[in-house]
Design a protein around this nucleic acid. Structure first.
Lengths: 215, 215
DNA sequence: CTCAAATGAGACGGCCACGTCTCACGCGGA
DNA sequence: TCCGCGTGAGACGTGGCCGTCTCATTTGAG
């Protein structure tokens, strides 16, 4: 099983599917399942480029397949949040790191979050994602108490924005309505505009890809 | 088949399901289908409070059921956009009307948009939704050219935000993480913050429900 | 009360996907 | 060359859901 079949250099450097899923097969299945949530094993097999029998050899059952993909996605989410270290440093920069990290994840995980998901996670991993979410809520409160973030934004709403705008960004890219770079930039700027107090906006910077500067 | 089983006065006055769906049965089916996209007819029937046979008498087939719900949701969407008259008056106020109207729709339509949807719409209705989207894009461009909206926001991204934040708002309410009022207010303010130039923000007002004033 | 229409309960056939199994083929190493 | 391993193709049983049908019961209007 080869590595990423074609991974040209993308200026935005989204995480490659292989950094999220253990397998090229898992990655392909996830990609197809994201845009066809009710796909049959037959269909998934074709998407992976393998026969149905081999797909069953790799994943004992359809439920196992879904479960593994959800596991991988959740692990990647937790890892991204932890690596962003939302509790460290100035809230504005911490926010930028979080958005950057999760934004890179969006194209890969994206619509997968729409699967039932929660039901398929081990308890331990579920606890880890809950803890990651709690860390993000704490970041919001920390920024508010420090006077950086708008106090009227409920941390819960921040989580909702983060989740669904990631989905929206991934979906826009999939439909060809936005480029990956544009989607990522818009995601970042929208979250910044929603959360930051207006006078803090100019302190918010993300690593913007070189080819898509403002306008 | 009674009317809305219990429709207490809600301060936010979201549109009642009966303003969107032709039936109480359709409304109940839509509600259940939104959070269980793969629900069986048996399950749907229980959600509607009717036997499976009766459900089949009301909807000739499962596909017909899905199609009707999508039709209704799309019609409500088109109607809401038209009533908001995005082409009239100052862009900032037009935006407020759009967000207000669609925000009221979110709890009802909400997750239904996640269904395959597009495949189940008649061509004429599909054209109407496309036209509604085009009107919204025009509103964005109009606001940008008039100096009200931030020029770096792609109209396409505005549509994505609108769609997915509506879904996120509906989902947050469903999970009990936000009240309907809070979700609606956050939706409005996030879209305003994302789209309006900072110096225009104070001109943006939505009809805020009386019980949830700022903080 | 009477009767017609609607409903619930359940059976039935058909279909499709799942999951298991067998077998033939190809490929690589000894 | 021979052998072992993985794969593809396909058959097969099973189960669930769909859609249709029948029939007993209920509901509501006159």
């Amino acid at each position: 099983m080869s590595n990423a079949p074609a991974s040209p250099f993308t200026p935005l450097r989204p995480v490659s599917p292989d950094q999220v899923f253990v397998d090229a097969a898992a990655a392909a299945a996830a990609r197809h399942l994201a845009l066809a949530p009710a796909a049959s094993m037959q269909e998934l097999a074709r998407a992976v480029g393998v026969s149905r029998a081999t797909l069953f050899r790799r994943f004992p059952s359809r439920a196992a397949l879904i479960a593994e993909l959800c596991q991988s996605a959740a692990q990647a989410y937790v890892r991204a949040v932890n690596e962003a270290a939302p509790h460290d440093g100035p809230p504005t920069q911490a926010l930028a790191r979080v958005v950057e990290g999760l934004g890179r994840l969006a194209p890969v995980v994206g619509l997968l979050g729409l699967q039932t998901l929660g039901e398929h996670l081990e308890a331990s991993l579920l606890a880890q994602t809950a803890q990651a979410e709690e860390e993000l809520r704490r970041l919001v409160r920390r920024g508010q108490e420090g006077g950086y973030f708008r106090v009227e934004v409920d941390p819960e709403w921040f989580l909702a924005m983060l989740t669904w705008l990631m989905v929206g960004a991934a979906d826009s890219v999939r439909l060809g309505r936005l480029t990956a770079n544009a989607a990522h930039r818009h995601l970042s700027e929208t979250l910044a505009a929603a959360l930051l107090r207006p006078d803090e906006l100019h302190h918010f910077t993300v690593r913007t890809p070189p080819d898509s500067r403002r306008r």
